[in-house]
């Protein structure tokens, strides 16, 4: 069963620009769903729509099998969320900030220290949250999201502002929460590398349209198909001829020949043939495999 399901969701802030175009996605229960897309793709807009922070204009949103709007309060009690820049009351301490939410959720006040320790803010004492670094505010936001022991977490770029150590910690924490408490997590990011290390499922959004949805393994397969080795040579056309005679899939891109092969012996062999034909080989490198390239390949 999917814990979050969106069908044909479109949204526009102004008449001029359709920000989401019939977005559909399914977050399976128990998964860590990486919602991937470059800045401005529509990730935050989608998440805000799921949480009812924006008025829904079309399409359908279901959480735990129920339509959101008529079950808003019941569903929200099962969701913890952290959207965009962190929400903290600057003049209050970490503890006081959580007290604000604890009163509303009516969860035991012992939870406050539990979650503060969990995110590593147990030591901040009397320090006001306004003096926290962005990373600390982000952790406080996560603590607030976890306070009421939700079964779904919706996190919008939660590693923003964290240092490399903090990013690893956050990732491990999310994995632990998912594994040990069975919390389903929908987490957005603009970094493929981050999603790769964390998610079990991936949805890719670009310019308001879903380009891909599936498991991480399925994405990796696609990625491999599109990747390979690039030869930077003195004569691209001639090099292409030689390589294509053995690997029909070879292509000329920006003067470089790219071939979808990974076998080291084959690469050496191709290199030998090029040199033999008198073509200077300047560089042999793994083809770029970043998000941009994957997008480009997905759009094609």
């Amino acid at each position: 069963m999917s814990c979050i399901e969106i069908n044909q969701l479109s949204h526009h802030y102004s008449r001029a620009e359709q920000v989401l175009k019939e977005v559909s996605l399914k977050v399976p229960e128990g998964s860590i769903y990486g919602f991937l897309g470059p800045n401005g793709a529509g990730k935050t807009t989608t998440l805000r729509l799921i949480l009812g922070l924006l008025r829904q204009q079309s399409g359908e949103i279901k959480i735990l099998g129920k339509p959101f709007a008529p079950h808003r309060e019941a569903l929200l009690s099962k969701i913890g969320s952290l959207i965009e820049n962190p929400s903290v009351y600057a003049q209050l301490t970490a503890m006081e900030n959580l007290k604000v939410w604890q009163k509303v959720y009516q969860c035991p006040s012992t939870r406050i220290e539990e979650v503060l320790d969990l995110v590593g803010l147990g030591h901040t004492g009397k320090k006001k949250a306004g003096q926290f670094s962005l990373g600390m505010k982000q952790r406080l936001g996560l603590a607030a999201a976890l306070l009421h022991q939700p079964s779904i977490l919706i996190l919008d770029e939660p590693t923003n502002g964290l240092d490399p150590g903090g990013i690893v910690e956050m990732r491990e924490l999310l994995k632990t929460l998912n594994r040990e408490l069975g919390i389903s997590i929908l987490v957005s990011s603009h970094l493929l590398s981050e999603v790769e290390k964390l998610a079990t499922h991936v949805g890719i959004i670009h310019l308001g349209q879903m380009l891909f949805e599936g498991t991480l393994d399925e994405l990796k397969k696609r990625q491999q198909q599109s990747s390979g080795i690039q030869f930077d040579t003195g004569d691209g056309a001639k090099a292409l001829q030689i390589i294509q005679s053995q690997h029909a899939a070879a292509k000329l891109e920006n003067g470089q020949v790219s071939v979808p092969i990974h076998d080291r012996a084959l690469i050496a062999e191709l290199n030998r043939q090029l040199v033999q034909a008198g073509i200077p080989v300047y560089q042999i490198q793994a083809a770029q495999n970043d998000l941009e390239t994957i997008f480009m390949n997905l759009i094609k």
Partner: peptide, 18 residues
């Protein structure tokens, strides 16, 4: 203004209360 300045409206509006 407290909610606007601290970006907390979104957090308030995702708590389970009418």
């Amino acid at each position: 203004q407290l909610e606007y300045r601290n970006n907390t409206w979104k957090q308030v509006h995702t708590t389970p209360q009418a």
